[in-house]
Computed example of a mutant assay.
Amino acid sequence: MGLEDRRDLETDVYQPAEDSHLLASAVLEHLSVDETDLVLEVGTGSGYVAGRIDAETDARVVAADLNPHAVRQARTDGLEAVRADLVSPFADEAFDAVVFNPPYLPTDPDNEWDDWMERALSGGEDGRAVIDPFLEGVGRVLATGGVVYLLVSSLTGVDEVAAQAGEAGFSAVSVADESFPFETLTILALYR
């Protein structure tokens, strides 16, 4: 990979941060899978979370992102990666677990800019512009008995997201959280 390609990844792909580490740790602590299980990470960004799951479990892991630079980085790092808008291209009931660190920062539409990093961060005015359609569609690709691990910020409204998950047919359980100066991050496990 050339210097210019690396620069693209640094400016166009969400790299691991506190939220990535919390999500990976929570998933690895709570996920029970074997070599026949299939795990999907939606919005993989750098591929950090998918890479940890791939390295530390026997499951087959698929990393997906709308950002072509993120897909390229995940593939370069040895992950099975596909370009996808949320869960739209995947088969019904294909995954035993789905993991998602969505764009969740509430953003004033007048202050948004149009690039890949903005898409990785901005959750629209209420922080749920990507979370809500994800919750509406993820049940279709989840196998019977499967689980969704979703990272949610207090800036987005954990109770509001849990209520939306309930409307989509899930029960939500908090399995991890961590407080930072401006927000608390919570990992919700969603079950049908």
Rank of each mutant, 00 (worst) to 15 (best):
M1P: 07
G2W: 08
L3D: 08
L3C: 07
D5V: 14
R7W: 12
D8C: 12
D8H: 12
L9D: 07
L9G: 04
T11V: 14
Y14Q: 11
Q15V: 06
P16C: 12
D19T: 04
D19I: 02
H21R: 13
V27G: 09
L28C: 04
L28N: 02
H30R: 15
H30Y: 11
L31H: 01
S32H: 12
S32P: 04
V33F: 06
V33D: 08
D34K: 12
E35V: 10
V39A: 04
V39G: 00
V39N: 00
E41C: 04
E41K: 05
G43F: 03
G43C: 10
Y48I: 06
Y48M: 11
V49S: 08
A50L: 11
I53N: 03
D54Q: 14
A55G: 14
D58T: 02
R60C: 08
V61Q: 02
A63E: 03
D65H: 08
D65P: 09
L66Q: 06
A70Q: 03
A70I: 00
V71S: 06
V71G: 05
Q73F: 04
R75W: 09
G78H: 08
L79I: 11
L79R: 05
R83E: 15
A84I: 07
P89H: 14
F90V: 02
D92M: 00
A94S: 14
A94Y: 00
A94N: 07
F95A: 06
F95I: 08
D96G: 15
V98M: 10
N101G: 10
N101Y: 00
N101H: 02
P103D: 05
Y104K: 07
L105D: 07
P106E: 13
D110V: 09
E112H: 07
W113H: 13
W113C: 06
D114F: 05
D114I: 00
D115R: 03
W116K: 01
M117H: 13
M117D: 10
E118W: 15
R119I: 05
L121N: 09
E125V: 13
E125C: 08
R128D: 01
A129R: 12
V130S: 10
V130T: 15
V130D: 11
D132L: 15
D132I: 11
F134R: 07
L135R: 01
G137M: 04
G137K: 09
G139V: 11
R140A: 12
L142Q: 00
A143H: 06
V147E: 15
V148F: 05
L150K: 03
L150C: 04
V152Y: 03
S153W: 05
S154P: 06
T156W: 01
T156R: 02
T156C: 03
G157M: 03
G157E: 06
V158P: 04
D159V: 07
D159Q: 13
E160F: 03
V161D: 05
V161P: 01
A162H: 05
Q164G: 09
Q164L: 13
G166P: 09
G166Y: 08
E167H: 14
A168H: 08
A168Q: 09
F170D: 01
F170A: 01
S171V: 11
S171L: 09
S171R: 15
A172E: 00
S174Y: 01
S174F: 02
S174M: 09
S179D: 13
S179R: 14
E183I: 02
T184K: 10
T186Q: 03
I187K: 00
L188I: 08
L188Y: 00
A189R: 08
Y191N: 12
Y191R: 15
